[in-house]
Lab assay of single mutants.
Amino acid sequence: TRVETATETAWISLVTALHLVLGLSAVLGLLLLRWQFPAHYRRLRHALW
Rank of each mutant, 00 (worst) to 15 (best):
G29A: 15
V3T: 01
L32T: 12
V3Y: 01
H40T: 09
V27S: 09
E4Q: 11
P38N: 13
V27D: 02
F37C: 08
L22E: 05
L33V: 09
L24C: 08
H46C: 10
G29H: 00
L20A: 12
S25A: 14
W11K: 01
L48F: 06
G23K: 05
T5P: 02
H40A: 11
S13A: 14
T7A: 11
A6L: 09
L31N: 04
T5N: 00
T7F: 10
T5M: 07
V15A: 09
A39E: 15
V21Q: 01
L18M: 12
L44N: 00
L14T: 01
L20G: 10
V3P: 00
W35E: 13
S25V: 13
S13V: 12
A26I: 10
E4P: 04
L32W: 09
R45P: 03
L24A: 08
A17C: 12
E4L: 12
L14N: 02
T5D: 01
F37Q: 02
L31D: 03
A39F: 08
E8I: 04
A6S: 14
L22D: 02
A47N: 08
L33F: 08
H46Y: 09
L28H: 02
E8T: 10
T5Q: 00
F37E: 02
A39Y: 11
T9Y: 09
T9M: 14
I12V: 12
R43I: 06
E4M: 15
P38K: 10
R42A: 12
S13Q: 10
T7R: 11
Q36M: 15
L14C: 03
L31C: 15
S13W: 14
R43A: 11
W35S: 14
W11S: 04
T16N: 03
T1H: 13
L18W: 10
L33P: 01
L44A: 10
H40W: 08
L24I: 11
L28V: 02
E8K: 06
L28N: 03
T9L: 13
L33I: 11
L14I: 10
Q36E: 10
L30Y: 09
T5C: 01
F37H: 09
R34L: 04
Y41P: 05
R45K: 15
V27G: 11
Y41G: 06
T5W: 00
G29D: 06
E8S: 06
L44G: 03
L48P: 03
A6G: 13
T16I: 14
L31T: 14
A39Q: 14
T7C: 01
A47M: 08
T9V: 12
L31G: 04
L18V: 06
E4T: 12
R34H: 05
V15K: 02
A6Q: 11
R43L: 08
A6I: 04
R42D: 13
W35N: 13
R34Y: 06
L28P: 03
G29I: 14
R45E: 04
R43D: 08
A47S: 10
H19D: 01
Y41N: 03
R43F: 08
